[in-house]
Each structure stands twice: as structure tokens, then as C-alpha cells.
Amino acid sequence: MKTAIYAVIRKDFKSVTDNRQLFLPILLVPVILIVIIPTIFVLTIYFVPEEMGDLETLLSMLPESAGNAGIQHTILRVILNNLLPVFFLIIPIMTSSVMAASSFVGEKEKYTLETLLYCPLSLGQIFYAKIMASFLMSMLVSLLSFAAMILVMETEIAVMFGSIILPSLSWPVLLLLLSPSVSLIAITLIVRGSAKAQSMEESQQKAVFLILPLMLLIVGQFAGILLVSVWLLLVLSAICAFAAWILIRGCRNRFTCESLLQ
């Protein structure tokens, strides 16, 4: 039965990579968030080094260790370790939403779900395979995006400022705990709505509820109210993991073939 589950996962991956409309946002959003935006930040700091009047307030809020290095390095460190993690979270949310919507509602929309239900897989196994496909895609895109971001940003910093800035401990917490939890929440929100949703666009709208708290976090970074730290990310990861567990638990039993095909 494992072969059948792997086959569904492989097919779901191919469904997204073969579809330009779906694959483009998965490719473009990370490029904008982790290549273009950081590059703009790095270039701004490089070309406007003396304009720091407005930044004094922010720098004074940072931990003392952050302020010991030069101003430019301090700002770059703030961008890499405080600002970009929040932007980065959009990637797993977007990828898992697109993938889950295509995998569940997209199949329903294209009348291929019924054919899948006629196969000797239980509804639970089909759900498991599809959730795994969305989750794995989200993790793959997140990890590749992180690798690309570090490569691009460190190269730019090394070339422009002659040294590199190491990512803080927040990043492993984000990549290995918060990102998977947030992905699972996005997937389960879409799966739960899949029986009623009639189109992929309709189901993707559910992900907006996850983007909203993220926007608050971004505002928090700029305003200096709630700065990203390992502890904050750990707490958020624990809350999201618990929410994901609750959502997944109730997910499978909500559905029957009949409710899915309505």
C-alpha cells in the first residue's frame, strides 16, 4: 500500500510542477521574498550608510550584543535575523496552500477525485498521501528558499562589506519547528474546507487567515514592539503545532466519499 501512497504523492508533485499557473507563484514568491527584498535592503544599507538618525531608536531596543558591531553590520543582522524570518513564513503558508488547494479541491474541480476514490485505498490513506504531498512540497520549497537566501545574501554582504553575518538560532527553530507547524495548519484549513469549496481560488482564501497574524508580526518588527527571538519563535511553534494537531485530529472523520463528491 506504501507504493500506492508514494504514487499519489509523486502525482501531486507533478500536477503542480506541470501547471504553470500553480508553479509560478511557488517559484516567484520565494524569489521576491528571499532574493529581491534582501538585496534591496543590502543595497540600501551599502549606499546610504550615514543616514541613521531614524534608526537610533530601533538600535537602542536591540540586545547589547547586537549593538557592539558597526552600525551597518548591526542593521544587516537585524534584517537577517529579525525581519526576514517573518517575511520567510509567507513561503510555507503560500506553498502549502497552493499545493493543498490543487491536491484536494483541484481534483474535485477536475472530476479526478472520484476516480481516485474508486481505487482500493481507504479515504484515510488518500488523505494521508495528499497531506504528505502538500507538507513535503512546502518543506522542500522552504529549505531550498533558505539555502538560496543565505547564498545570495552572504555573497552580497561579503562582496560589499568584506565579511559575512551568520544566521541566528532563530532560523533553525523557524525552519524545523514553526514552518512545519504553520504549513500543517494551512493544509488542514484548506482540507477542512475542501468538501464545501467548489474552486481552488475559493479554498485558497482560507490561507488569508494565516497571513493576517503574520502581517501583525511584520508590523511588530518595524515598530519594535515584538522582535523576533528564539524564545518567541519557540512559543509560536508550540502554539501552532498544538493548533495543527487539533485541526488534523478532527479532519479525517469529517469526510465521507459522499460529502466529498457533493
Binding site: Y111, T112, T115, L261
Partner: peptide
Amino acid sequence: VTEHARMYDHL
């Protein structure tokens, strides 16, 4: 085989 049991267009 039913009218509503279709297969994948991209394959």
C-alpha cells in the same frame, strides 16, 4: 466507468 470519473489532463 462513469461520466464523472475522469483522469489527469497533464499526464
